[in-house]
Amino acid sequence: MNNISVHKLTPDMAEQYVAYFDNRAFSDGSEQKGCYCVWHHWTEQKEAERSALPENERPFSKRNYAYELVKNGRLNGFVAISGGEIVGFCNADLKENYFRHSRENDPESWEGIDSDSKVLAIVCYIVAPDMRGMGIADSLLEYACGYAEENGFDYIEGYPSDGAFDARNCGGTDSMYIKREFQIGHAGSRIIARRKLGN
């Protein structure tokens, strides 16, 4: 792990970000290739726009949207870098910034949280196939915890995978959270790992 560093994703990394998803993130041929980790921002309107495109342009819509989101500072998180290249990504942001996790669209997951609380939500980990098993997701979570503490968040939460940790079940393992004293609970059928920060 000595040659891997973790950093906040910044708008100037937009090109590098989409290149990671183009070439490295799913180089094992996973069916999730092409996700660009935009699902949590993907609205019905975006899907309608994509469906209206000519068929040959549809595969690029998520790529272009991801580039635009990163460039505009609206797709956030942390990247693991090795040899100057992204080898892992953790999608994390203020919880209400995610369309799918807003209070309106996901009220169950907000139970027990005050209306003025600032929550850092970690929605996904994507580690390059050739770099898996090296503790990169764990390092990304560790960095996220430090970031949340330093930036005045009241809570940090993640959504651990129920069962095998793979490209479609990309929330990390519950053990990653348990060892950092997150409380494990449920919102409907989903697992939520949450830790209160500060006093």
Rank of each mutant, 00 (worst) to 15 (best):
N199A: 13
I122Y: 00
L53N: 05
P129M: 08
G84T: 02
K33Q: 13
C124H: 10
P160N: 07
W110D: 07
D166E: 15
E142R: 13
A25C: 14
A52R: 04
H7Y: 13
D28M: 02
R58W: 00
V79T: 13
L197V: 03
N105L: 12
V123F: 07
G198E: 06
D114M: 08
F99Q: 05
I184A: 00
A187S: 15
S109V: 13
F78N: 01
M1S: 15
V38F: 05
S115I: 12
N151V: 06
Y143L: 01
N199Y: 10
A167W: 14
G172K: 02
S5W: 08
G185Q: 05
S139C: 10
R168M: 11
S115E: 15
G152L: 13
D138G: 07
V87R: 05
F89I: 09
S5Q: 14
V6Y: 07
R190A: 14
Q45A: 15
N151Q: 10
G73T: 02
D114W: 09
D166V: 03
I184F: 10
S30V: 08
S27G: 09
A167Y: 14
D28Q: 04
I126L: 07
F89M: 07
L141N: 00
R180W: 04
R132H: 08
E68N: 13
P160I: 10
H186A: 11
G172C: 10
I113P: 08
E150C: 10
H40Y: 14
G171I: 07
S117I: 01
V87H: 00
G133A: 11
T173F: 09
D154K: 07
I178M: 14
S139K: 15
N91T: 04
S30D: 11
D114N: 10
A92T: 03
L141S: 03
V38H: 04
K71F: 05
I192A: 00
D28T: 08
K179N: 11
G83Y: 05
A52Y: 05
D162V: 11
A193V: 06
G171N: 05
N105W: 05
D22K: 01
M176I: 03
K71S: 15
Q45K: 15
N64E: 03
L197D: 08
T43C: 04
L120A: 09
Y143H: 14
P11E: 03
F78E: 05
S82C: 12
F21C: 02
L197K: 04
V119A: 07
A52W: 05
W39T: 14
R168D: 08
P129T: 08
R103H: 12
V123I: 11
A80F: 07
G158Q: 02
P11D: 04
W42I: 00
V79E: 03
Y65W: 15
G152T: 02
Y67D: 06
P107N: 00
A187H: 15
I192P: 04
V70N: 06
P11A: 00
V38D: 08
I184D: 02
M131C: 14
M176Y: 11
A144Q: 04
R132Q: 15
D93M: 11
V119Q: 09
I192D: 06
E104Q: 14
K179H: 12
L9F: 03
I122K: 08
F153N: 00
